[in-house]
Design a protein around this nucleic acid. Structure first.
Lengths: 231, 231
DNA sequence: GTAATAGTGTCTTTCAGACATTATGTC
DNA sequence: GACATAATGTCTGAAAGACACTATTAC
């Protein structure tokens, strides 16, 4: 039996919502190959490290953030023979959905790191096959908002219904009816729980604050392609 | 930077419906480690092979079946440091949903290979962490039947609505109302297309034959946990 | 007061689930 | 004829989308 000896890396698709846009964390590569190009953060898996451990370590190194702050899951694995000029490198990609962090990009060991709106990332701009990995991560996130309560991972510990609606509208690039959205979110079992507090964002009536509920699946789901209001 | 040099394998969760039960293909290991134990089919990725290619090759070797016959997708990757006593082995698992094959388990290079009802596989019976991989594959299959038309992957090229219903009932371990199921399946856009032919299974009115439609997502989805009748 | 946002209630349509009824075959 | 399965139709209740209306703040 012919064994193939390869290197294994983890790459991170880190998504957050900043300034009203879905953004991904990219790093500028300090060393060849693809030196100077933007890429997903990531690195080699250490000899005695589990894959998720390696991804969590990279997340801490790149953002200074605890992986438990948002949501974290394995995305997919990419191992085409020619994807890395250094040789056979198989990468296990992880997807994280994070709240807008107070101190992002701290302690990064890359030449530069920045949040970039995903719509501004040009096709072919990223190193390796990171274009495709990022695209797969975005699509996974979009799909998961429909039937899981993961939109709350983009929010801080306490948030309003309007905050949560903004998450959906930003990720899906749609408008949702605020009144029907409120009814669905507060009606779905275990989606959100009131904290009792309220907050005033700009003008208007104070909004109730909520925290994440215990549900892991949404019943019924919030569907993406429902007819948008006014169209 | 410390690189970890590891071996990479692919493992296959092959699911089909035989004799009214959801079954998985297992092989009996002919060599250590875990010699004589049941395991998922799989093997090492060749030096110039993409991951999906390696999985498709193993599928052909183990079952003699073309991967295009059913459905084929990457499942997940498992790389805990101690999962293989031979050293660091990361495995990329693939999931295939296959119709009941006329010549299963042909050309297998394992000591033995057999379809086994998934409910008869004891916890801890399988080698490595294949218990968990199989469980993840089954759960993925169950979930995907809800919002994709992949149940047709378990059927031959032409099938009846009752055949398709049996797939759902077997995978989900439920009963579905034949009349409502018929209405939903024939009403969902692109799920199935009539071939014009009919067939008589046992007694009763001849059933129309259908083939798979072009849809890749089901709108609306067929939900598993819908309120059970009379409760 | 006006403007703005939060939240509730109501109406209509659509669709899921329950189940009667008809259609077409074997025996 | 009886019996079995396939397919269609009808009824009811739940939920989605549209949108009127009330509540509570800033100005």
């Amino acid at each position: 039996m012919t064994r193939s000896v390869v290197s294994v890396t983890v790459d991170l698709v880190l998504l957050t919502i900043r300034q009203g846009a879905l953004q991904a964390l990219l790093v500028r590569r300090g060393i060849p190959p693809f030196q100077g190009r933007w890429a997903l953060p990531g690195g080699f898996v250490l000899p005695d490290e589990d894959l998720a451990e390696a991804a969590a370590r990279e997340l801490r190194e790149e953002t200074g953030v605890d992986p438990t702050a948002g949501h974290f899951e394995q995305l997919a694995t990419y191992g085409a023979p020619g994807r890395d000029p250094r040789g056979r490198v198989v990468t296990v990609a992880y997807l994280a959905l994070l709240p807008d962090l107070p101190s992002p990009v701290a302690g990064s060991d890359a030449a530069g790191a920045d949040w970039r709106p995903v719509d501004d990332i040009e096709p072919g701009e990223l190193a390796f096959d990171h274009d495709r990995i990022l695209g797969d991560g975005i699509e996974r996130a979009r799909a998961k908002l429909e039937y899981t309560p993961l939109a709350t991972a983009f929010c801080p510990a306490e948030f309003t219904v309007a905050d949560l609606r903004t998450v959906y509208e930003t990720v899906w690039r749609t408008r949702l009816d605020p009144r029907n959205f409120h009814r669905k979110v507060t009606g779905a079992d275990g989606f959100v729980e009131p904290t009792g507090g309220t907050v005033i964002r700009d003008r208007g009536r104070p909004a109730q604050l909520f925290r994440r509920g215990p549900a892991t699946l949404l019943h019924p789901p919030l569907l993406r392609q429902s007819s948008p209001p006014g169209s």
